[in-house]
Design a protein around this nucleic acid. Structure first.
Lengths: 260, 260
DNA sequence: CAAAAAATTCCGATAAACGGAATTAGCAAG
DNA sequence: CTTGCTAATTCCGTTTATCGGAATTTTTTG
């Protein structure tokens, strides 16, 4: 589960209830939701009543089982129109098979980078620095760095400001970011040299549409021994760039189609 | 806008803020959200802070513009996997062109029927009894009736119990529903004879998968003059049934594919 | 039909949400 | 760099919605 501590505020409580329902693929009755959410029966009931009122959830009249309503799907239809993660499936599999290492896909959201997909290759020592769903400040980790480095000067400055203390948690300073930004501009890819986990490295490239929209970052991580210059330049980087280009193209096509 | 009165409770307030953001396709800043939501600046800010905390919204660090987060899309990915409305587009257009009347698509959700799509035909007198997004108790209107009549005995009973007062608002009694249920069983379609709006009629058929899952209802509405028996039997009903079968097939195929 | 379980309502206590006012931060012009 | 302006954020005393335990009703089960 995401949070072990009790959420503060009705809105956070509502979110927890929604998450419980989202995880219960065939709906859940009140007692089930009480058990999963750890809220009192009364609180759970009241939250569910509020969610019913706004049509975020509905109740099967016969079984009393609660489910998520289509209102939620409608809401998000206006936000994230394209599922980048699904779109990248095949390309990531190709990369994982080719490199035998771990492939990550991250998308930017404000000042944070979200890992939305991961594929592991055949090599027995696996570098699993990110799980699907993990959030990091922009600039921490190869994929997140690639996203950070693809922003404008103003945006990068704003990100640093907003994330200052969060970045500090990872031991990352503005100077580190400047260094990595220079590296990115000179080499066309972002790198992560044991910043988070020692003994492993990763490199990443951004995925941008022709119009310059930053969609995601593709990264490959492995133990240092598998990340020497020749392997990067001959195998990993070309692979990443190829798949990034393909993904950007597919994204662009879908976006055009959706605007009718 | 959906509700004119101020929503009660933090959860409803949060929903309103989310709706404002959903409608503002390129995000909105605090003042914009205040203007749209009609909440005080402080309240809006606090709600946004809570929504940020749970990653339902995020803020562009440079512009301070708020947007809906991908967390919402993730939530609903587990609820409504298939967008029936999008799937029915072509079929509904065919029906609207062929009949020249108005075509409605409704989906069931608990004890309510939601109109999720509508297509108008060429005939100059239009019967627009339902808008996209309108909710009715199961049993009110042709499409809603078709859904109601496709439920099991227990489910129908539960629906009547739950919707008792709401049905009364439309002047619909249990007896009415029993009559229409019998009609449906005998004729294979549901009808609406001026119950809601006088001078128009509609007929509807359910859309069910081979496994018996109730997906939606397809309806065609027109002024009474265009709804005589011969036109129903020769043109409208065959059309509805054909498209319902197609839609069910396409739905089934997609569902199988999604379960890998 | 009785017993048990689940769902829903009640109610006094309390914490959380309220909004106006004050403060701070960001920005543009001088 | 300073100044003035606007938008964003925080403060704080007041109000009110939310809290959870207990009581009640409804539904299910034996």
């Amino acid at each position: 589960m995401t949070s072990l501590s009790a959420p503060k505020g009705s809105i956070a409580r509502a979110a927890r209830v929604l998450e419980v329902l989202s995880l219960a693929h065939d709906g859940a009755d009140l007692t089930e939701i009480v058990a999963q959410s750890k809220f009192s029966k009364t609180t759970t009931f009241r939250v569910l009543a509020a969610l019913r009122e706004i049509d975020y959830v509905f109740q099967d009249p016969a079984t009393r089982i609660y489910r998520l309503g289509s209102k939620l799907a409608e809401l998000s239809r206006n936000s994230e129109r394209i599922n980048v993660s699904a779109l990248a499936e095949r390309g990531m599999n190709r990369l994982a098979e080719m490199s035998e290492d771990t492939v990550f896909l991250s998308v930017p959201e404000g000042a944070v980078s979200i890992c939305v997909n991961r594929k592991v290759g055949a090599f027995p020592i696996r570098t699993l620095t990110l799980d699907k769903g993990d959030r990091r400040p922009l600039g921490v980790g190869a994929g997140s760095l690639a996203l950070y480095c693809s922003l404008s000067d103003e945006q990068r400055a704003a990100v640093c400001r907003v994330n200052k203390s969060w970045l500090a948690d990872y031991g990352v300073t503005d100077e580190n970011l400047t260094v990595e930004y220079t590296f990115f501009k000179e080499n066309g890819y972002a790198r992560n040299r044991g910043g988070v986990v020692n003994g492993m490295s990763a490199i990443a490239v951004p995925v941008m549409t022709a119009s310059g929209r930053l969609v995601a970052a593709l990264a490959i991580g492995a133990i240092n021994e598998r990340m020497e210059a020749s392997r990067i330049n001959d195998l990993i980087l070309p692979g990443l760039k190829r798949e990034a280009r393909r993904l950007a193209g597919r994204f662009n096509a879908l976006e055009k189609e959706q605007n009718k």
